[in-house]
Design a protein around this nucleic acid. Structure first.
Lengths: 345, 345
DNA sequence: ATGAAAGCGCTAACAG
DNA sequence: CTGTTAGCGCTTTCAT
């Protein structure tokens, strides 16, 4: 493995000159640059990442901190991760996937942050009140959130615009003529834990429905097909004449569809279904394909990384706060309601 | 940020002593060890990862090289990734997610390998003839594959035992009384590109069916719901009296189910469906839930990382070659066939 | 059982 | 525009 010294010797220049043609941190004449480049090619030289990191105090490694529990990642989160990895790679950074225990080891996080392995960090699955954020801030690590805390003062983040997403979804259903719309959220425990998407969409749903003069009926659901089934049963118990379901639960929505079929109700003729923050791939798995508010996918991860890198390379003090909308994509699961009363259903 | 010097000074010992209590590479008396530990705690000392990496020539970073194309990762691959990340973290390594262009930039790979950023590398989505493998080997990077090449001589890998998986799936269907079983594989292009899982399951299917004295009918399908629909149509054109589908395509299988429903055929009463190498989460999305050959999930990634680390820490020359079975999990999509002829169907 | 010191390979002042 | 040199913070001989 050739070192910078070898290159310098072969090119008959000093090591610093070699370093400077590499970093471009000061002007080099065409002639010397050419000599150096030739020598590099000759020796098949690659700079040593660790040495560079130590000397420059920049590892060019970014951390992607994500809680990895039993369930693994959904399609939406996976898209964030792959988007981030691709973006990091594109700007010459490496991306370390760092599984951090959901709530537990803040100490581990602090330790991580102090090792100076990461130039900066993207934190996923942020809670409304998230100790990890303050821990990271105190450690002085440049930070961008995917999602956001309750108080975003001084923080950089990218998140989904849940308010607008819910508003559009409700508008779509109301526009079709639906009046009895039930909102199926994540579980009660998830809500209690302060999970932002669940709480923000809940509030947005109340606002949207009230704005249309309709009653906001909401049902929690476990993140499973069975949870979706149970939630739909509960929904019918509460609102027997419901004609539309708005699901904020990518997994439960399949149980909802199954239960609907089991009850002899057709989608979308008897009941319309909109799945929020859902990837097209998942939407296509259902029959009929789901009308969704499509999640921003890899763009989310990409934007987070780009903001972080801008923060690292740039002057420094700008904050990046951005909400991304989910786009309404109408597929086969929504239609105008038909009154089941007249059919005797 | 405290350095090792600070700790040494506070503990009134030399830097090397501090280093040795950290690495445990030579015996230290209880007394000095205690002094050092106290000083470390006092200063909240964390070793600098880059400095350590440079001096020891071990970065404690592993690379996970995976092609990231448009579609992103499926549930099965995502499980590999999360399993690998968790395992690496558990043994004190970091895991860098490195998107490498499917076939393209071998040079980029070589460059990566020469930067000495990775102590070792796990390569995913290996093709039967994969230039990346030889490139990495030439670069002298310790390597473990997830999947395997055609010639596995001298290579370490973890892969799915496709032969046994197919054998069991076919045995399950035949045991239920099925005789007309159609195998839906990946697309013809994927097969042509030398994608191991597709090729190995194809061969295994022929062997298994022939062994039962049955004719192996095989249909390719694009990786999409639409692809599954088209494949099923083709299957019925070729084998009108088919009673079971064996799907090696996690995405297409949902299109198969949709098309079956569209044709008025019930699952599993009219047609049984087995989905191969599929995660339970995905299986539960279907109605009825799919009988699957369940993919090893995170175990795959974990085993690959553990083998790699053993190779790095240990003496060195052992090769790790392991095939993991997929377990038959019977859910609602398989049952004994009923003759549709008698129903006029 | 401990210390001193020579690097690891590079960056970035400082000096022309 | 180029060279010299002092570190970056740690590991690891070589001494004792």
């Amino acid at each position: 493995m050739a070192t910078m010294h070898d290159v310098a010797r072969l090119a008959q220049v000093s090591v610093s000159t070699v370093s400077y043609v590499l970093t471009g941190a000061r002007p080099i004449s065409q002639a010397t640059r050419a000599k150096v480049l030739t020598a590099m090619a000759e020796l098949d030289y690659q700079p040593n990442a660790m040495a560079r990191g130590l000397a420059s105090r920049r590892s060019r490694i970014l951390g992607l901190l994500l809680p990895m529990d039993e369930r693994g990642l959904g399609a939406t989160e996976t898209a964030f991760v792959t988007g981030a990895a691709a973006a990091a790679s594109a700007v010459g950074y490496h991306l370390v996937l760092s599984p951090v225990g959901g709530g537990g080891d803040l100490d581990g996080l602090r330790r991580l942050a102090s090792q100076r392995m990461f130039d900066g960090v993207v934190l996923m699955e942020v809670q409304l009140a998230d100790e990890r954020v303050t821990a990271l801030q105190q450690a002085g690590v440049p930070l961008v959130l995917i999602g956001r805390t309750g108080d975003t003062d001084g923080l950089s983040y990218v998140d989904i615009d849940f308010a607008q997403t819910v508003r559009e979804a409700v508008a779509h259903l109301v526009g079709l003529g639906h009046r009895q719309i039930v909102y199926v959220n994540h579980s009660a425990e998830t809500l209690a834990s302060g999970y932002g998407p669940a709480l923000r969409t809940r509030d947005a749903f109340v606002t949207a429905m009230t704005g249309h003069g309709l009653e906001p009926v909401m049902i929690p659901a476990q993140d499973s097909a069975a949870g979706g089934r149970a939630a739909l049963a509960a929904a019918f118990a509460r609102t027997p004449d419901l004609t539309a379901v708005l699901a904020m639960n990518e997994t439960a929505v399949f149980g909802i569809l199954g239960e609907l079929t089991a009850r002899g109700l057709a989608v979308p003729d008897d009941v319309s279904v909109v799945s929020m923050v859902t990837s097209p791939q998942v939407a296509e798995l259902a029959t009929p394909a789901l009308t969704t508010m499509t999640s921003p996918g890899s763009a989310m991860g990409r934007i987070a990384i780009e903001a972080l890198v801008r923060h690292l390379d740039g002057a420094g003090d700008e904050r990046h706060q951005q909400l991304l909308p989910c786009a309404l994509e109408i597929r086969g699961s929504t239609a105008a309601p038909r009154s089941r009363h007249t059919d005797g259903g």
